[in-house]
Nucleic acid binder design. Structure first.
Lengths: 196, 196
DNA sequence: ATATATTTTGAATGAACATTCAAATTTTAA
DNA sequence: TTAAAATTTGAATGTTCATTCAAAATATAT
């Protein structure tokens, strides 16, 4: 007996609201009052679902990383050149960094330098993204699409280029420059894989 | 007549204190009171030298970018393979990102997504760093050290790799992993320049 | 209908915040 | 030694902050 729990739903709603506020005003300026206000709800309700703002921030970082991870979904076995090119295109596509390569994500990233746990979480995420690409390259090698000799090293460089790209392109407003340089980065990767 | 102005000195002291506080507690948590406390000075003194916290933050970002720029000083004409290798070593060396590739720098970077002026400042800085490397490659080409065909594109990729490296290596605590991957990144660049 | 568990509110706390202002102190040149 | 200009302090402002607590409202199972 008793009332049905809304805990998980409510917590996700709250984190989403936190995200929206953080996007506009910065992560540290996303106060409980503002997050509550956005949901048209009493501030103390938020304290009911998260013991403290700190705990909320911890949950938020996990929430962000979860979403980030979800973008990198493989579209099945890499058994043809087309599939591989699609994969690479996806890595450099504009849509997914529109979602996450913004203020909020880098603000979270900045936290790793002051918080060991955040650092570990970020590292784990990035390493698992790398592992996923390793797997794809193993497949494309097996199907004769590529002949990559040192897959680990190659994947490391590829992600290095992707991450550097998002860092720099975050500063680029000019659409032409954005596209030109994205092409440069992507072509360099294709060159590495002998796919030009 | 009247007293000699300490404005510039004091402002720099204040910004340095801001930096120290921001390093420990995050940029947004670096309050005027804390910055003043660290200098053993009255908080209103800070308001005397900066009209508002906002203006202080603006000055701070310029201050950070200035320091960042200063690290990239070229050691004269690139007229030998040794000079070029030194230059590349420097770009990947651990010392300079120890100073700036930390919480504070990325927090500042995160601001570009909410502030057009910061974005422009960051862009300008990064582009001028790129220009400086273009110049170095022009020299190394002229002296027959390298035979780079598309210097602009090459520099773009090189910086892309450096920036990606700092992003990822920020998460790496393990010394061996740090060094191994740094070597990978650097060797890839040397390969691009046919300098292995 | 009643007991119960959960959601939600509302009021109150004290601390920290940016900012203001006037007054005090210190240095400098004439 | 005096006037001027700058530094520095100290007290006060009202706002926002995270957090607490008790009370109210709501839904669910028996």
């Amino acid at each position: 007996m008793g009332r049905r729990s809304l805990k998980e739903t409510r917590q996700k709603e709250i984190l989403m609201s936190f995200y929206q506020v953080a996007k506009k005003e910065g992560i540290e300026n996303a106060s409980i009052a503002k997050v509550a206000n956005r949901l048209d709800v009493n501030p103390s309700l938020i304290m009911h679902y998260f013991k403290s703002r700190d705990e909320m921030l911890i949950a938020f970082v996990s929430f962000i990383l979860e979403k980030y991870m979800a973008i990198y979904k493989t579209n099945g076995e890499i058994n043809s050149k087309e599939k591989l090119l699609d994969l690479i295109d996806g890595l450099f596509s504009r849509k997914w960094n529109r979602l996450f390569n913004d203020s909020v994500f880098y603000s979270c990233y900045a936290l790793i330098y002051r918080n060991k746990n955040f650092k570990k979480q970020f590292k784990t995420l990035h390493d698992s993204l790398r592992k996923s690409l390793v797997q794809s390259f193993v497949e494309s090698n097996q199907h004769g699409v590529t002949a990559i000799s040192d897959i680990d090293k190659t994947v490391e460089i590829v992600f290095n280029i992707i991450e550097g790209a998002y860092y720099y392109l975050g500063m680029v407003d000019d659409k032409d420059e954005y596209e030109t340089k994205t092409e440069w980065y992507k072509n360099h990767v294709l060159g590495m894989l002998h796919l030009e």
